[in-house]
Amino acid sequence: MSITDPVRLSGSSAGGEVASMECAQVRFLSVTDVESLVTLEESTWDEDQAASAGELAARIQAYPQLGIGAFTADGVALASLFMKPITVEELRAAATWSDCAEVRTPAPARTRSLFGISLSSIDADAVTAIFEFFWPYALKGGWRDIYLGSPMPGLRGWMKANPEGSPDSYMREKRHGLPRDPQLRYYHGKGFREILECKPGYFPHPASLDHGAVIRGRIPLAAGAPLWRLVPLSWLHLMRSTLFRLV
């Protein structure tokens, strides 16, 4: 599998994104979006990887402020991002992506961390627009970081060429200062630059030998959380197009 072949986890259709389409609206998701989101899922994931209408609705209902979509003027979903609160303890104890992504209510108390359940897209600029949209809300909400479980589609080929190596060493290998693996390199460009742990049996994914990499991205300027709670959300919206692109 190459980066052009998406997997659903906290994965995205990175290389499968097409040239930018016009993104008319980025907003929080509602259950009325499910039909359009199912079409997006089916266009980016394999049949056994795409989330069902029921799964999508459950995520939206459980975490209404943590599901975001980008749409064309006529309502076609270009990208979606689903997240949930998670504690570091839950993340470490989770053996699989399903453990991390399971919808649970109530949400864990006293956590400033999120887990990215899935990132699906057919448009590169729509993904950037989603993260830019969420940034003011993340600052106001006191969120500090987002964890993802990523495939490593280059692992199988690398192991064939380097039988003495290990999945963990491949996960941490760099080329020109960037992760060797194409999917990890994609996420690095989206701000997920901390590679934390290699988990075997994380999800079914032949090209990754069923291994997943747990990675983390820090929310830009989140360290100033006490200040951001005092700043009106409207100000953060005005600041986001400038500051988000600088950090």
Rank of each mutant, 00 (worst) to 15 (best):
T111W: 05
R216T: 03
A129T: 02
L230D: 12
I3F: 04
H188I: 04
G189W: 09
T128D: 11
E173V: 05
W235H: 14
G157M: 06
G67K: 00
A73V: 08
M159T: 03
L91Q: 06
L243V: 15
S166M: 07
F82I: 04
F28C: 02
T87L: 09
A62V: 00
W45D: 02
L209F: 06
H211K: 01
W158S: 03
V127K: 01
F115P: 00
S12C: 11
D48K: 08
K199D: 01
R175T: 15
P167H: 05
L209I: 12
I3V: 15
E132N: 07
F192A: 02
S120T: 11
R172I: 03
G142D: 06
E41D: 07
L178K: 14
V31P: 00
W135S: 05
I60N: 03
H188D: 13
G165P: 08
S169V: 12
L29P: 01
P232D: 08
M1S: 15
G217D: 06
E17M: 15
G157H: 09
L29M: 13
A101I: 01
A129H: 04
G75M: 10
L139Y: 01
D46R: 14
S234K: 13
L139H: 03
E132C: 10
F133I: 07
S98I: 05
P232K: 10
T32Q: 15
G116S: 13
W228N: 03
L236V: 08
A70K: 00
G11C: 05
S121C: 08
I130A: 02
L91C: 08
H188Y: 15
C23G: 03
P85I: 00
G165R: 08
R112N: 10
R27H: 07
D181C: 04
L196H: 08
M21P: 02
G201L: 04
S113Y: 11
E41N: 09
E47N: 09
T39S: 14
E22N: 10
A109E: 11
A77L: 05
W235D: 11
V231D: 10
D74K: 12
R59Q: 14
V214P: 00
M239R: 06
G191P: 05
T242K: 13
I195R: 04
D123I: 06
T128G: 06
G191Y: 05
P151K: 08
I195E: 00
I219V: 13
T105M: 09
L246P: 02
T32H: 11
A138G: 10
A50Y: 04
L66S: 00
C198N: 10
P64S: 07
A79V: 02
E132S: 11
R175D: 15
K190L: 15
G69P: 01
V34L: 08
E102N: 05
A161G: 10
D168V: 08
T242G: 12
S36A: 15
E42T: 12
